[in-house]
């Protein structure tokens, strides 16, 4: 699904990623942990195609090189990023936005666009699953949403867009324990042997609910250790300093 080889990235003359390698097969869920400022969000941003980074190395998605592919095309090809800090967009109605987005993705996949009614049905169903108040959908996108509501809104979008590669950037931060379970259920129910997940988190807690196949430690722009979920438990005890 995703193959990253020797990825180097810098922005404003600051080197952030320094030779990062990762390989994710269809159906796998990888977790990335690492100290603040180690480059986790940067990696997520680069995968989504965010501009402004100087990049070298190889980024392969579904066997194709991601270079030169724009942000929206990547999204249409099934790369989904749940933001660490979802952007507030005043004046843009959440539900209208979701529909536009879904239809763009569907169109790119050769599917028919959904009319307002069938769209509403899907949204209602998915937002109920996530325990979201439908009223939120008629509000402006992320504007005035609480931290947790924003995160739920990201997961709602994930469920609606049905992507192939899901990147969750600290989606668990700021969630209460019930919300955490709901989000985890959301992820678990989407898991199948075609979809892949890259879950960025600081807390082993999330990994109790979402069982990772692999856990990587990212530090100073490199993966310094990889393992299975036991690595996350070990980290919880020793902290990043204990890793060598």
């Amino acid at each position: 699904m995703l193959e990253i080889k020797n990825l180097n990235a810098s922005i404003n003359n600051k080197e952030i990623l320094k030779g990062l390698n990762i390989s994710i097969k269809p159906g796998e869920l990888h977790a990335i942990m690492g100290p603040n400022g180690s480059g986790k969000s940067t990696l997520a941003n680069i995968l989504s195609g965010k501009e402004g980074y100087k990049i070298s190395g190889e980024l392969m998605y579904q066997g194709k090189n991601l270079n030169e592919i724009s942000i929206d095309e990547r999204a249409q090809k099934g790369i989904f990023l749940a933001f660490q800090y979802p952007t507030e967009i005043p004046g843009v109605n959440t539900s209208n936005f979701l529909r536009t987005s879904l239809n763009k993705v569907r169109k790119a996949q050769g599917k028919k666009e959904l009319d307002a009614l069938s769209f509403l049905k899907i949204v209602k169903e998915k937002s109920n699953e996530l325990g979201m108040d439908e009223k939120m959908l008629s509000r402006q996108l992320n504007v005035g949403f609480s931290g947790g509501e924003k995160k739920k809104n990201e997961i709602l979008q994930m469920k609606i867009l049905d992507p192939n590669l899901v990147i969750l950037d600290e989606t668990d931060s700021g969630l209460d324990i019930d919300a955490l379970k709901i989000v985890a259920d959301g992820v678990n129910s989407s898991r199948n042997n075609e979809k892949s997940f890259l879950v960025i988190t600081h807390y082993q807690r999330l990994l109790n609910f979402i069982k990772p196949d692999f856990v990587h430690v990212l530090s100073d722009g490199k993966i310094i250790k990889s393992g299975t979920k036991e690595l996350a438990m070990e980290l919880e005890k020793t902290g990043y300093k204990g890793i060598n």
Binding site: G49, I71, D72, A75, T87, I89, K104, L161
Partner: peptide, 14 residues
């Protein structure tokens, strides 16, 4: 905002 919308599949213009 443009970046956010583009990660959801909308083109720059849209």
């Amino acid at each position: 905002s443009i970046y956010y919308l583009m990660t959801r599949g909308l083109s720059q213009k849209e």
